[in-house]
Structures are given as structure tokens and as C-alpha cells.
């Protein structure tokens, strides 16, 4: 409980407080539209009102080292921590880096698979909120054909 309060104090940005309030217990997360339109990773974090992140080996990102087709890159994310409430998927090289903002209920295991687009070879970043702490891990993926080509 104390951790949670400390975290909320840390997250002085009103937007995050509102997001967290919305995320529990109804999971009816309010979409921060400008976060999905943010042009670089730093502005995604700012738009979501996230404080500084700690790197963690408890977040495991499985993805191909080399993706032939950037339009369909399989990702598998496992967070080996209790009480994971939220997972963010970010492709740092994309024009809009925020791929997904996932709110997990108590019955959701901190694991997911998804197929994403990568515009170019870039770093995939996962941010997890577990028990009020924000942790992050990255994985680099080399892309042969980008996922945002004219079509």
C-alpha cells in the first residue's frame, strides 16, 4: 500500500493519476490520444505522465533478431513479477512509437503475444507497472523490409 502511495506521489502529473484511477477496478482505461500521436519515445512517456524507469531483467521480450517483414513482427512478452497491472509496448523507431497500452485485471497473467509493425530496424521497449513500480526492458530487432512502406 505504501509503495503505491509513494508511486502516486512520484507521478505528480495529473494525467497519470487519472489514468490509474480509471484503470482500477473497471479497467476502463481512458485513451490518451496524443500519446499515440507522439513522435518519439520521450514524448510518449511525457504524454502518459510516466516518471523515470528502472531497467529490469524480470521483463522478457521474445522477438526475432532479424525480421524479414516489418509489417508482421511477432512479439512475446513475459513479466516475471507479481501484480502486473499495466504493460506498454513501444517501437522506438516508429513514427508513432506507442503500439499498445494494456491494462491487466487480477486474473490476467503478465504474458502476451502480439504482432506489431516496425518501420525500420529499431529497439522495442516494454514498460511494465508491477505493484506500483515502473520497470522497463528493451530488445533490438533488425528489419529487412520496413512495415510502413508505400502500398
Amino acid at each position: 500500500m505504501n509503495d503505491r502511495r509513494d508511486f502516486l506521489r512520484l507521478a505528480a502529473a495529473a494525467s497519470l493519476t487519472r489514468l490509474l484511477a480509471d484503470a482500477e477496478p473497471a479497467l476502463a482505461g481512458e485513451r490518451v490520444a496524443h500519446a499515440f500521436a507522439a513522435g518519439n519515445p520521450e514524448s510518449v512517456y511525457a504524454a502518459l505522465g510516466l516518471p523515470a524507469l528502472a531497467t529490469s531483467t524480470a521483463i522478457v521480450i521474445q522477438a526475432p533478431d532479424v525480421a524479414e517483414n516489418g509489417a508482421q513482427v511477432p512479439l512475446e512478452v513475459t513479466v516475471r513479477l507479481p501484480r502486473v497491472q499495466r504493460i506498454l509496448l513501444i517501437a522506438e523507431g516508429n513514427r508513432f512509437p506507442l503500439l499498445a497500452d494494456i491494462r491487466l485485471g487480477e486474473r490476467s497473467k503478465p504474458w502476451l503475444e502480439a504482432k506489431v509493425k516496425l518501420a525500420e530496424s529499431s529497439r522495442i521497449r516494454v514498460i511494465a507497472e508491477a505493484d506500483g513500480r515502473l520497470l522497463t526492458a528493451t530488445r533490438d530487432v533488425r528489419v529487412i523490409v520496413g512495415g510502413c512502406l508505400p502500398g
Binding site: R31, L98, R107, E113
Partner: peptide
Amino acid sequence: VLTLLTGSGIAANPLFGW
């Protein structure tokens, strides 16, 4: 039990596992 907010960076014909 789960809510995902997604952007256009999710692949066409999205596939998810939970």
C-alpha cells in the same frame, strides 16, 4: 479481465495471445 488500447503500430489482421 483485460483491456488493450492500441495504435496503428499493431500489425494488420491483429493476432494476440493472452
